[in-house]
Write a protein that binds this DNA or RNA. Structure first.
Lengths: 140, 140
DNA sequence: TTTTAATATTCCTTTACAAGAATATTCCCT
DNA sequence: AGGGAATATTCTTGTAAAGGAATATTAAAA
């Protein structure tokens, strides 16, 4: 797994660029406009994405068409794959069951790809606060 | 998709910690030793991983047992899932075919999970150099 | 050939973050 | 109670990275 992929995606605007390019190749100007960025910043972010191998360019006269590259996402997927086996072995049964259920569901119905990105901003908030509380203690 | 996951994994030592925890829960001292880190740096990295929700702690007397959390990896997987559909639609047929082949292969043989992480450090090097060359031009 | 549009690059400033070193905290043990 | 082990926190410092503004580059068009 190439860590540069994570660095590239860790920046909010670059992440948005990647998600934007999901709908197809775009020009620097189009990206800058849609994301309310100044053109130089858009160019700079695209440069980082380019060097990380996440996008590729095609020069058409004045314009530059940026599009997503497949390989880094494949690599990410492959990396996650090595984790799945471990989950099946070590994590508790419910989680594993739910995981398999979701995967299977995705295999069967590839049509409804819309109701999937809107159930996210509610997680990993519990870890922000429990620094001051001392739960999950365990005496032995 | 929570971008904090990417930030957390973008740091080399933290990435190594995560991969290390793949083999099971570990103590701060064990992590520091195995990765040749000083204890404070290990603690600090683990704090970041904790706040990003990638790991959880269980205090046992003096020690702290850190273990991976399932959810961020599931979220990452779900995020990638939204991309797979697009690949099938837009990317060229060969890539798509190879992708499906690999996924299917992983579904069938879950036994050989070892020969998978040693074929990586050869990619995304071609994007480092072609900044000075002006290939992929295209006149219209 | 000058102008104009699209994009890239440079310079500057500010901010975030990682390592190092020292210190604080917490808990067990005697 | 006191000492020592495991871990967390603080402080400092160096460095990378991001945005803003200005400027350079490139190609088409007039």
């Amino acid at each position: 797994m190439d860590i540069a992929t994570f660095s590239a995606l860790a920046e909010p605007n670059r992440f948005r660029i990647v998600e934007l390019l999901l709908d197809g190749p775009l020009t620097v100007g189009e990206i800058a406009e849609q994301l309310q960025l100044r053109q130089p910043q858009a160019s700079k972010h695209l440069r980082v994405l380019l060097e990380a191998g996440l996008v590729e360019v095609q020069a058409v006269a004045n314009r530059r068409n940026y599009k997503l590259r497949l390989e880094p996402f494949q690599a990410l997927d492959a990396w996650l794959e090595t984790y799945r086996g471990v989950w099946d072995e070590r994590f508790d049964a419910l989680e594993s069951y739910l995981r398999k259920l979701r995967t299977k569901e995705n295999k069967e119905s590839k049509e409804n790809k819309e109701n999937k990105e809107n159930k996210e901003n509610k997680e990993s908030k519990e870890n922000k606060e429990n620094k001051e509380s001392k739960e999950n203690e365990q005496t032995n």
